[in-house]
Amino acid sequence: DEETLERIAKELKEKGWTLIVNGKLITDAREALKWLLEEEERR
């Protein structure tokens, strides 16, 4: 759910983690959240 996604995005940002999505590096939590939401919609 959205709360979980926001928590994940926040944790990613705090830890300075990066996500690699389709070979693209995502360092911004907002971008990561946007991607996660798009993935949820596809299901």
Rank of each mutant, 00 (worst) to 15 (best):
D1H: 12
D1K: 12
D1L: 15
D1F: 15
E2T: 09
E2A: 14
E2V: 11
E2K: 14
E2P: 14
E3H: 10
E3F: 12
E3N: 12
E3Y: 13
E3M: 13
E3G: 14
T4C: 15
T4I: 14
T4S: 09
T4M: 14
T4L: 15
L5R: 03
L5P: 00
L5A: 04
L5I: 08
L5Y: 07
E6T: 06
E6M: 14
E6L: 12
E6Y: 07
E6F: 10
E6D: 12
E6A: 10
R7A: 13
R7N: 08
R7W: 14
R7K: 08
R7S: 03
I8D: 01
I8V: 10
I8G: 00
I8L: 14
I8T: 00
A9H: 11
A9C: 15
A9L: 15
A9P: 01
A9N: 07
A9T: 11
A9W: 15
K10H: 09
K10I: 08
K10F: 12
K10Q: 13
E11Q: 08
E11A: 13
E11K: 13
L12S: 00
L12H: 00
L12F: 09
K13N: 12
K13H: 11
K13G: 09
K13C: 15
E14V: 02
E14R: 03
K15A: 05
K15Q: 10
K15P: 02
K15F: 12
K15T: 03
G16S: 04
G16W: 09
G16M: 09
G16D: 02
G16F: 12
W17H: 02
W17C: 15
W17R: 01
T18N: 06
T18K: 12
T18M: 11
T18W: 09
T18Q: 11
L19I: 11
L19T: 04
L19E: 02
L19W: 05
I20N: 04
I20G: 03
I20C: 14
I20R: 00
I20K: 00
I20M: 05
V21A: 07
V21Y: 06
V21C: 14
V21H: 04
V21W: 08
V21Q: 03
V21F: 06
N22M: 10
N22Q: 02
N22C: 14
N22D: 11
N22E: 05
G23A: 04
G23K: 00
G23Q: 02
G23D: 07
G23P: 01
K24G: 06
K24L: 10
K24C: 14
K24D: 10
L25E: 11
L25N: 04
L25M: 05
L25Y: 10
I26L: 06
I26K: 00
I26Q: 02
I26V: 08
I26R: 00
T27R: 08
T27S: 06
T27A: 08
T27G: 02
D28M: 07
D28P: 03
D28Q: 02
D28R: 06
D28I: 07
D28F: 14
D28V: 06
D28E: 04
A29D: 02
A29F: 13
A29T: 08
A29Q: 04
A29P: 13
A29L: 14
R30E: 11
R30M: 14
E31L: 06
E31I: 05
E31H: 02
E31N: 07
E31W: 05
A32Y: 11
A32F: 14
A32P: 00
L33V: 06
L33H: 01
L33I: 10
L33F: 04
K34E: 10
K34S: 03
K34P: 00
K34T: 05
K34V: 07
K34H: 04
K34W: 05
W35H: 09
L36R: 00
L36C: 14
L36I: 08
L36G: 00
L36K: 00
L36H: 01
L37H: 05
L37K: 09
L37F: 07
L37Y: 06
L37M: 10
E38H: 09
E38P: 03
E38I: 08
E39D: 09
E39Q: 11
E39K: 08
E39R: 05
E39A: 07
E40N: 13
E40T: 10
E40Q: 11
E40A: 11
E41C: 15
E41I: 10
E41P: 03
E41Y: 12
E41R: 11
E41G: 12
R42M: 08
R42E: 03
R42S: 04
R42N: 06
R43C: 00
R43V: 07
R43A: 12
R43M: 09
R43E: 08
